[in-house]
Structure formats: structure tokens, C-alpha cells
């Protein structure tokens, strides 16, 4: 019943000289980056730098203005169930119970109802929402709604999960819990993850690699020395990378500084 990493490995995502944005107003150009199957790429940048545009292009909601976006060597032609998108804002359908929300990608995929129920129950339980299946989205907290979004994204057994600042609106403690949960389910499923954030610490914790967006370009992709290891937060290598990334983002301008860079 549960999709395992062996039969559903993550997708490989490749961007070749991609320009993206809306026609007439390109936001990013010359983007070249590869995300190997099953890896986590985090993308950092200041607000308005094109992070969301990049994700929407990967999701197929927005066509690239130039260049190729490929998932497993096949060009992306539009949205598809192989790439799930987790939104920063509340993207659950408010008239559907949490369970019905998680069932939706399965219903679209034509999974029969009993199977749908079981898989939705599995994923809701996996994100720690046992017993809340019949609640409506506005009767649970913001953090719980983001858990449901994660469950909904994973229920469709995608090969890549694209996450657009999904924990941006959560308080620090809830956010750390969500990061740990994401790491857990990522280990279980082996999906490829592209995770956009403006929080450098979050990027350095979650990513195998960190891509930096600045001045309309993808300026650098750094290997993270100790991915998903909270204890490695203060190692010299991590501190060095943090300094490099913050400098690339121009974090010395106080009003735009990423949140709590050295806290």
C-alpha cells in the first residue's frame, strides 16, 4: 500500500539555460542546475528574486521563456502528477475535510475509493494528524494545514516535491518540527525535493545543495557540508558556507537581512 523508495525513486530535474518569468518581464535568466534523483536542492534568495517563479516553472504552471526544463530527460510541457507542489499559502480546498483533501490527487489518478481512503489515512497518520481526518481545514492550525499539504503532495506518489516556502508562515518551533518531519518522509520515499526559502539556516539544514538566486541569475550552487544534521550547525564548514551565502544575498542591508542569520 505504501509507496516505497525502491519502486518509486525520485526524478532527476535538469534546467538548461532557462529564462523564466512572464512574457515581457523575465525574472531569471541563464539558469543552469541539475538536481540528481532523490536529492534535496534548496533555493535561497531575497523576496522578489524569482524563487516562486522558478518553482512554478518546474511545476509546469508557467512555461519557460527560453531554455529547457526536463524531468528525467523529458521536457516539461505542463503540470503533472509526477511533480507535486506545496504552496506557502493555504492551498487546501476549504470545503473538503482533511481526508478528502489528501484523497484528491488519488481521485484524479483514478484510484478506487477504498484504496484512496486507506492511503489518505496512512499519509495523514504519517504527518501526525491521526483523528483529525474529518476536520475541515479552517478548524485546524496553520501548522497542521501545512502538514496536510505535505500529506496531500506525497499521497499522489510524486517523483519530485516542489516546496514554495512551505514553513514560512509558521513560528520557529513549529517550523523546526516540520523540517524534521520533511526529512523523515524524504528518507522514506526517496523523492527529489526542490525547496525554496528565504531562510539561509533552513536552506543549509535541509539541502544536499544550496542554490543562490541574486540579481536575476542563479549565481552559485554550493554543496552543503553536513546535510540534515542539526548538530553540524556550528561547524567551521557550515559557518563558512553561511557567510558565503549571506554575502551573495547582500545580507548586510539590514531591512532585507534573512531572518535570524546567526541566532
Amino acid at each position: 500500500m505504501r509507496p516505497t523508495s525502491s519502486d518509486r525513486p525520485g526524478a532527476r530535474i535538469a534546467l538548461r539555460d532557462v529564462s523564466l518569468g512572464h512574457p515581457g518581464t523575465p525574472v531569471l535568466s541563464g539558469v543552469r542546475v541539475d538536481v540528481p534523483a532523490g536529492q534535496v536542492l534548496t533555493v535561497v534568495g531575497r523576496s522578489g528574486c524569482g524563487k516562486s517563479t522558478l518553482l512554478r516553472t518546474l511545476a509546469g504552471l508557467l512555461a519557460p521563456l527560453a531554455g529547457d526544463v526536463a524531468v528525467d530527460r523529458a521536457a516539461v510541457r505542463g503540470p503533472g502528477a509526477d511533480r507535486a507542489l506545496v504552496f506557502q499559502e493555504d492551498a487546501l480546498l476549504p470545503w473538503r475535510s482533511l481526508r478528502a483533501n489528501v484523497e484528491l490527487p488519488l481521485a484524479i489518478a483514478g484510484v478506487p475509493r477504498p484504496d484512496r481512503r486507506a492511503r489518505a489515512a496512512h499519509w495523514l497518520s504519517r504527518v501526525g494528524l491521526d483523528g483529525l481526518e474529518r476536520r475541515l481545514p479552517h478548524h485546524v492550525s496553520g501548522g497542521q494545514r501545512q502538514r496536510v499539504q505535505l500529506a496531500r503532495a506525497l499521497a499522489g506518489a510524486p517523483r519530485a516535491v516542489l516546496m514554495d516556502e512551505p514553513f514560512g508562515a509558521l513560528d520557529a518551533r513549529t517550523r523546526a518540527g516540520m523540517q524534521d518531519l520533511l526529512v523523515d518522509v524524504w528518507r522514506d520515499t526517496g523523492v527529489t525535493v526542490v525547496f525554496v526559502t528565504h531562510d539561509v539556516d533552513e536552506a543549509l539544514f535541509l539541502g544536499d545543495r544550496v542554490a543562490v538566486l541574486a540579481d536575476g541569475r542563479l549565481t552559485a550552487v554550493h554543496d552543503v557540508p553536513h546535510p540534515r544534521d542539526r548538530a553540524a550547525r556550528e561547524t567551521p564548514a557550515t559557518a563558512e558556507l553561511r557567510r558565503t551565502v549571506l554575502a551573495a544575498l547582500g545580507a548586510h542591508t539590514p531591512e532585507e537581512a534573512p531572518l535570524r542569520p546567526f541566532s
Partner: peptide, 12 residues
Amino acid sequence: PVWEEAVRTMGG
């Protein structure tokens, strides 16, 4: 708009 986008990214 995000409701529709969500359903489209599920393959709807």
C-alpha cells in the same frame, strides 16, 4: 487562484 493551481499540479 491557488486552488486551481493545486488541482492542476495533481494532474487534474
